[in-house]
Amino acid sequence: MSSPRVLVLRAPGINCERETLHAFARAGGAPEFVHIRQLLEAPERLDRFGVVAVPGGFSYGDDISSGRVLAQEMKARLGDRILGFVERGGLVLGICNGFQVLVRLGLLPCTKNRLEEEVTLTHNLSNHYECRWVTLRTEKSRCTFLPAGLTLRWPAAHGEGRLVARDANLQKVLLDEGYAALRYVDDRGQPTERYPWNPNGAPLGFAGLTNASGRVLGVMPHPDRSYLPTHMPAWRRTVLDRGELAHDGDGMVVFREMVRVAKAES
């Protein structure tokens, strides 16, 4: 079995592509950059990949609304092909701005298998950007590659991360039917809406979503900034307590599991 090919999307303003690429490579994938222009010119390129990653950043400056312009571009010119990619077994990861793009595109949570904006990621209640490490719990969800029951520390770094569903009914569906893949938890391990454990005020502490088929994952906090052991803020304490550095940082699980599943299915 060869390494699964991972498309790491580049676009004006995307700025986490290097670390995303490195994390997938470290996990045993075969990642490569593809610029959105190249993809729009030849959308069939998509079919050569097993995994698509939309990295974080400020696509097109993000100054109308985060991720909207890139999502609009992808929807208009790639829309069905992306749905088809997922239906045929492709995996998709959106991190931070990439998550915002997937949400605006309608690929997440995609409860009705059509590209439609069902939720949004909107302004933090603080009304400003904030960078802080958060604690996350992976839920029992539809996600085919993210194990449930993990407690993970990743850094959040965003100004528009408050996940709001279109209505209360959908919000309940997201929770009850396994779309909410990750939630912010407080110092007792409980899902929380309270600052600072929940940095943006998202109802029910939603931090990440998967889609109906569990093949798409979007997360606001950054596994791509927490996959190496020295990324972790407490790595020096870990060395003292365990006598050595951990092998991975907490974000590594996402890349490793995506590569593992993509490989097993290829």
Partner: peptide, 17 residues
């Protein structure tokens, strides 16, 4: 906290500890 001090994934010693 208003500055991104983690992007590029190079951080091994952060502004707050």
């Amino acid at each position: 906290r208003q500055y991104d001090h983690e992007v590029q994934a190079a951080s091994a010693g952060k502004p707050l500890c």
